[in-house]
Design a protein around this nucleic acid. Structure first.
Lengths: 198, 198
DNA sequence: CTTGTTTTATGATTTTAATCATAAATAGGA
DNA sequence: TCCTATTTATGATTAAAATCATAAAACAAG
């Protein structure tokens, strides 16, 4: 998103997070801008009885957690490293200075937020009104464009577990497993030794 | 959001929409920035069997439909006037010029998008994992802060129909009616001649 | 290489909101 | 003011995904 040199110029520091390590927690006030150098970070909520909902998964060069930073509101979700990851942290006041002095960066931020809002709009409509097959397929097709699914000989490899797909679509693992099976039977995707291709 | 004089300086024109009139449709490419002068606009989707999902409801001084404008993507939803409304329209190229020449406006846009993303994050988590009572209550409490619910002697008047609440939360009217009844019985809100107060 | 954990898998049962049916109350328009 | 459409309301039934139970396969860690 923002060039690393620019971030470092304003005083950003690199920090490493082990797999499963928490980066920030729901309910806390934001203090930094976060941008991923390497690894994979998820933002998610846990409801009253421990069920997870994944707000989004972020990769190299992507930022996360800005909305509450701009609004001075508490984080609505947790950020957790899915893999060992390196993240650049820039304190809020320095980040705001960076923005003021680099109007082009503001445009980049706008485009990024717009992109995420677009994804949320599409998924919200799906999740509220559509049946499981529709939901899962929409997530997968969206993922091809926005998550880092890689094209292989059998199609795009959907490198999400069934559980992750469930947590992203609001479905249960068993339902996802059955849904994917049914989608395969209909020929819209392939399962090759348990991996899903589209 | 953006001062009317500034918008007009860049060539924005006022346009009136009658109740139920369509402002733009899902699938079309954005051409303008829209900001409400008066009235009420909803953005919503219709799924395969005609069921509606309301993405958001917007009032005086609010803008809508920017994400696809910034991304050059098709609108993911329709915009329809809920009441007779007046809207300022600014063509995309002039809007982009305005942004470039007024960095402070960019910050405003960022804050606005951040706000909407925050709402969507909260509602997405609710809609995917929580039971109807939780969902409806979250929408109402969110609405007190962000929709224009007005404080009256009995509390905040939730000026949504049961159907609208359903379309915003992904529930059916009957379920919303029963849920609201049950919430009243628990004492968390009031129903006074069919109107809901919180 | 062994062991513990995660992921995928399947069948049976239950729960819960959707659906269907019907109607009264209210609001809005002619 | 009357008529029509919308909104609220309630009961009965159904359908669909969640839940529960159980297990094999794959993977990761030591």
């Amino acid at each position: 998103m923002i060039a690393i040199e620019v971030l470092e110029k304003y005083g950003a520091l690199k920090k490493s997070f082990d797999k499963s390590e928490i980066i920030f927690e729901e309910g806390n006030l934001p203090t930094h801008y976060y941008q991923i150098i390497s690894g994979e970070i998820k933002m998610s909520n846990y409801n009253d009885d421990g069920r997870e909902f994944i707000q989004g998964i972020f990769y190299k060069d992507q930022s996360f957690g800005e909305p509450p930073l701009f609004l001075n509101q508490n984080y609505p979700a947790n950020a957790i490293a899915v893999e060992n990851s390196e993240v650049l942290l820039l304190p809020k006041n320095k980040f705001m200075k960076l923005l003021e002095e680099n109007p082009k960066v503001s445009i980049k931020i706008i485009e990024n937020l717009a992109q995420r809002l677009y994804y949320k709009s599409v998924m919200a409509a799906e999740m509220s009104t559509q049946e499981p097959e529709h939901r899962v397929l929409k997530l997968i097709d969206h993922g091809i464009a926005y998550f880092n699914f890689k094209k292989e000989e059998n199609g795009y490899l959907i490198n999400f577990t069934r559980q992750q797909i469930g947590d992203l679509t609001g479905l249960r693992v068993e339902t996802v497993i059955r849904t994917i099976k049914s989608l395969e039977k209909k020929g819209v995707l392939k399962i090759i030794n348990r991996k899903v291709y589209r």
